[in-house]
Amino acid sequence: MAVAGVLHARVDARRYQTNAATRESPWVKRLILGLALAFFALFLLMPLIAVFAEAFRKGWFTYVTALSDPDALAAVRLTLLIAAIAVPLNLVFGVAAAWAIAKFEFRGKRFLTTLIDLPFSVSPVIAGLIFVLLFGAQGWFGEWLFEHDVKIVFAVPGLVLATIFVTFPFVARELIPLMEAQGREEEEAAVVLGANGFQLFWRVTLPNIKWGLLYGVILCNARAMGEFGAVSVVSGHIRGQTNTLPLHVEILYNEYNFSAAFAVASLLALLAMVTLGLKSFIEWKANRNAPTVGAI
């Protein structure tokens, strides 16, 4: 359900302000701008600043101590591990789905696209719940898994599954509109010139979609590392073992260890800012290369 604004050329605002028909009176303009910026500051800017202010409230020493705590380091490792599994899997899926949907005509295509978007409209809590129902102690495969000594729920595999579920559509939904807009002509030309399937993808398709692909991967990664609700259900909150970074934040916070909680949270906030920075960079880059390709 995320709204992707990739590859949309920005228009110069000045042209509205020099045109008598598209310009508001100065005080109306000031009012709109004032309200919009106040809303922005109140709901977006201040929470972001608060994270860092709270993290450093008790000084650098507390901050560094909180981050070098073995449990925190274990959480970092686990978070990286989960993202390292979930993101590539969804990347491969996204490319395959976009290839089938964007380059071929078949019945049920729109329905399939809607199904791919489904995980975005499901509450993260339910995303966790479904894997508990399947693999939990009382779940469908619970007994079989217990007999064979395989742990999925309250263990790393469950965390990975829940993360794959919530980040499932990210790459696909970036690529589908992009590849649809690009059409089939270039690939068909490559086939006519004798390229095989691998050459076709590697030399023609991939260079055309690289920015959209990267965009999807970055958003997918941000969600994979930051997911809270779904992993919270399947984690079991075992310190040092099944605690991801966001879950570690929760534990510290619930123990009233606020400074440490915000210190760990500041790592995640930093990740968010890097994500947004890269996202802006890709948009800029993609617009510069192909200003006419647009996707919503």
Partner: peptide, 9 residues
């Protein structure tokens, strides 16, 4: 930001 910032944060 709300897309990128983990909800717990």
């Amino acid at each position: 930001l709300p897309f990128a910032l983990p909800t717990a944060v």
